[in-house]
Write a protein that binds this DNA or RNA. Structure first.
Lengths: 146, 146
DNA sequence: GGGTTCTGGTTGCATAGTACAACTTGAGGT
DNA sequence: ACCTCAAGTTGTACTATGCAACCAGAACCC
């Protein structure tokens, strides 16, 4: 097998293994915010508000799933849904102060945990690694919102 | 914020985004084998058989979860459970021929999908990326089975 | 204007994956 | 022999998820 194929296989296997562990660690690290919720909040902060459909597209989730997650987040007071005056069908989602604050806390805790595993990495490697991930996750054709 | 912190945050965010998409793509790519099942089969092939407990530790899953997954895989004829003659408590898991064959098929399909996204990457970048992932996922202290 | 079609979102339903706790069986030490 | 620990299984409950059906507003076309 070519080295490239091996690398590709390794990449997909390792990414998957990471994913499993991420779910587990989310439970330990921040039981108050599920991994999905955390992810959605993070995206909302990053893009400074968007529609439910955008979240669904970005994370390859069904719109019903997003709808329910958002409902839960709204009930918890972390997210607000405002009707778009332009188009009454869409709900523009945004973080509340509480949402922002919890997100910041959890992000800190997660960052500390990740940092712990990365502490002996050279800064150059870290940045290159981050760059690769971004590059990998950026879809060439679809997902114009990114 | 320091560049390192930004990189760390990016790494964890991108890894998580990847995880969501991986689940979704698994459904499209190989409906006959869930992402978990695929992952477990892959591990069994890689380490050439192991105990259920090892799988649980490796993927941070509860042993009950693994037990059920393995039961399903066994019923599907993809995995065999042999009692360890040394220790009658343990079941040594292994792939059947059918398991190996399905795994190969799915791996090919997944590799093709991943490759599609990586086609314009330089070989050097691919290998470095793979290396980073392995390095990241290798736990410093625990998980001696890796 | 009045229909058809499209889009954003919600809700009903079914299913998969998961954890936790209780239990069973076998090993190992004392 | 007894106590304790380890591997697995099973009961139970919950969460995330997708699909299908639906509703409401927008866009388009005659």
């Amino acid at each position: 097998m070519k080295a490239t194929e091996t690398a590709v296989e390794t990449i997909q296997r390792e990414m998957t293994a990471f994913a499993r562990r991420a779910r587990a660690s989310a439970g330990r690290l921040h039981p108050e915010l599920s991994l999905v919720s955390y992810t959605l909040l993070g995206h909302l902060e990053e893009v400074d508000g968007c529609r439910a459909t955008d979240l669904a597209a970005h994370y390859a989730l069904d719109k019903s799933t997003v709808s329910r997650q958002v409902t839960a987040l709204e009930r918890a007071g972390l997210v607000v849904r405002r009707q778009d005056p332009e188009d009454h069908r869409v709900h523009v989602l945004g973080l509340t102060e509480a949402g922002r604050s919890i997100l910041a806390q959890v992000t800190d805790r997660r960052r500390a945990a990740v940092l712990e595993r990365l502490e002996d990495w050279a800064a150059e490697d870290l940045e290159r690694f981050a760059g690769y991930l971004v590059r990998y996750n950026t879809l060439p054709s679809s997902e114009p919102e990114e």
